[in-house]
Amino acid sequence: MLDYDKEADAYDVSRGGEARAAAATEAVLGLVPDGPGHLLDVACGTGIVTRRLAADRPGLRVTGADLTPAMVCRAGARLPGAVVRADSRRLPFRTGAFHVVTSIWLLHLPDAPEDVRAIVAECARVLRPGGIYVTTVDKAAAHDVGSDIDAVLAPRPRRTAQDAAATVTGHAVRHGLRPAGDGVFRGVGQGRSPRATIADLRRGWFTMLPPGQSRTEEFATRLSRLPDQDRPRPDPVFAVRAFRKPTAA
Rank of each mutant, 00 (worst) to 15 (best):
I198W: 05
G59F: 04
D12C: 06
I149T: 07
V32I: 13
D12S: 09
R89H: 11
D228K: 10
V168Q: 02
G37E: 03
R85N: 06
K139E: 14
V100I: 06
D144M: 11
A249E: 15
G131K: 03
G189S: 12
Q229W: 04
S103P: 10
G183H: 11
F93D: 09
D163L: 04
C123F: 02
D200E: 15
H99W: 01
D56C: 10
H171Q: 03
I132G: 01
I132N: 00
L201F: 12
K6T: 14
R85T: 14
A19R: 12
L31M: 08
R186G: 10
F185G: 02
T160K: 12
R215L: 14
A180Y: 09
P236E: 07
D150T: 06
R202F: 05
S214F: 13
D235T: 08
V137C: 09
D148P: 07
A19Y: 02
P234W: 11
F185R: 09
P129Q: 13
I132T: 14
R15H: 15
R128D: 13
F206H: 07
T68M: 10
A10W: 05
Y11R: 08
G191P: 01
V145M: 05
D228L: 13
V101W: 01
D150P: 04
D200A: 14
L209Q: 00
R158S: 06
E217Q: 13
Q229I: 10
F185Q: 05
S14C: 06
G204W: 00
T50L: 03
G17V: 01
R241A: 13
P211K: 07
F98E: 01
V237K: 11
C44G: 04
P80L: 08
A19K: 02
A154M: 08
Y4D: 06
